[in-house]
């Protein structure tokens, strides 16, 4: 305010008269700020354009397609508005698809994180061959899901699979892993957990190795045994890692496709949201609009899950 009064009082001064008064509600940028903005745009714009073209445009297109009754490959379509969404939620499919998605996600995220933590604790000990063991544990994570699915399919095959051979050796018949829908879901969960276990283990291992030693020593001096130290000290200190893994693993499980597709081509018993979206458009029915609506439901679900995790789970996280 003092500046404005000074400027107003000095209107006779030509230099001062040239100063423009700031307009309320309108920002002004210094030459330096403009230059920085230019550099920012030069560096970021190509990437932003690529993201807009290959991520956001397909996303918006998908939302638009979800409002159409459109047969894949056909050049014409009919606008149906919310029709595809109404049909999905009123059909018997929604319940089973969402249920299968929930079971698959909870089992794979829970399984991979719990087992990953146990493996990380084991790999954090001074044991012979530790480096080799770490590599072996992490290796499945970088393998192709298609390859993993095919190999495990051979293992589970009830006629000439390795598992069947082992079971026959002890006088047992192989369960119908592939044909029985309930067992098929168990089968793909086991394989998905096996594949992603290494990821959780390595991230937990990094978390374990960065724990402050003084806290652990203090707990030991206070008489806490290994189990009490693990439960009351290690787990809370690992909570940022757990939170990170919870978000990334949940997103990964909700988008799991390759292993399910290879091991159970018809999705009988293993029809998750993303698999149903595939089946509706490409796998069987050619209903591209309906499939797009299912994809949007998945997108919203992912958004809600991430939002809930950020809103509620992060409160429990202790940052050392």
């Amino acid at each position: 305010m003092a500046v404005l009064e000074a400027v107003a009082a000095d209107t006779a001064n030509p230099v001062a008269a040239d100063v423009r008064l700031p307009v309320p509600g309108r920002k002004t940028f210094s030459p330096r700020a403009r230059q920085e903005a230019l550099v920012f745009l030069t560096l970021a714009l190509p990437n932003l354009l690529l993201i807009a073209l290959f991520t956001y445009r397909p996303l918006l297109s998908n939302i638009y397609y979800s409002t159409l009754d459109w047969t894949l490959g056909s050049v014409d379509a009919t606008v149906v508005g919310w029709g595809n969404y109404v049909e999905f939620f009123h059909s018997g499919d929604a319940g089973s698809v969402l249920g299968t998605t929930a079971v698959f996600t909870v089992a794979t995220v829970g399984g991979a994180m719990v087992l990953g933590l146990l493996v990380a604790v084991a790999l954090n000990q001074q044991i012979p061959g530790r480096t080799l063991a770490r590599s072996a544990v992490f290796a499945p994570y970088v393998l192709s899901g298609v390859g993993v699915g095919m190999v495990w399919l051979f293992i589970f095959d009830p006629v000439y699979g390795v598992l069947s051979w082992v079971l026959r050796g002890v006088g047992l018949a192989s369960p119908q892993w592939i044909n029985d829908p309930a067992l098929a879901l168990v089968m793909v969960i086991l394989v998905f957990v096996w594949k992603n276990l290494g990821y959780c283990a390595i991230v937990y291992l990094a978390g374990l190795q960065s724990l402050p030693h003084d806290v652990m020593e203090a707990a030991t001096l206070d008489g806490a045994g290994p189990l009490r130290r693990f439960y009351f000290v290690v787990l809370p200190l690992l909570s940022p890692t757990t939170f990170f893994l919870l978000i990334t693993s949940t997103l990964s499980s909700l988008q799991a496709f390759d292993i399910i597709k290879i091991m159970t081509p018809t999705g009988n018993g293993t029809g998750t949201l993303i698999f149903e979206a595939y089946l509706q458009a490409f796998g069987a029915y050619n209903r591209a609009g309906y499939s797009a609506a299912i994809s949007v439901v998945l997108f919203v679900l992912l958004l809600i899950m991430t939002g809930l995790q950020l809103r509620f789970v992060e409160r429990k996280v202790h940052y050392a």
């Binding site: 918006l60 297109s61 939302i63 638009y64 397609y65 459109w70 056909s74 014409d76 379509a77």
Partner: peptide, 17 residues
């Protein structure tokens, strides 16, 4: 603009095939 962009390249909905 986003909606218009999204509508580009998809099927025809005007029956003018």
């Amino acid at each position: 603009g986003s909606v218009a962009l999204a509508a580009c390249g998809g099927p025809s909905t005007g029956g003018n095939v």
